[in-house]
């Protein structure tokens, strides 16, 4: 079994009001020196078999089709382990 992680983030040019809200809250809690915060999603995909090239290609396909909306988001696929 292998675990593949898909990170989905809003594209840099898309404003992230949730990240901004977190960013604004941090100084109030005493966390200084923060320039920016952006919020995203992390998917942990458990594979039946090994994370070989074919399996990763399928994960990229599912990220493209469902996990991310590539109009506004970008994604990164990596094997964890």
């Amino acid at each position: 079994m292998a675990r593949v992680v898909v990170d989905v983030m809003l594209k840099p040019e898309i404003l992230d009001p949730q990240g901004q809200a977190v960013n604004r809250a941090l100084p109030r809690l005493g966390f200084d020196g923060i320039v920016d915060v952006r919020q995203g999603k992390r998917f942990e995909v458990e594979l039946e078999g090994p994370a070989d090239e074919a399996a990763l290609a399928r994960v990229r396909e599912m990220a493209e089709k469902l996990l991310a909306n590539t109009v506004i988001e970008e994604f990164r696929v990596r094997v964890e382990g």
């Binding site: 404003l15 992230d16 009001p17 949730q18 809200a21 909306n69 506004i72």
Partner: peptide, 8 residues
């Protein structure tokens, strides 16, 4: 796409 409102 429709995304989170400005101001959340």
């Amino acid at each position: 796409a429709l995304i989170r409102n400005a101001g959340t």
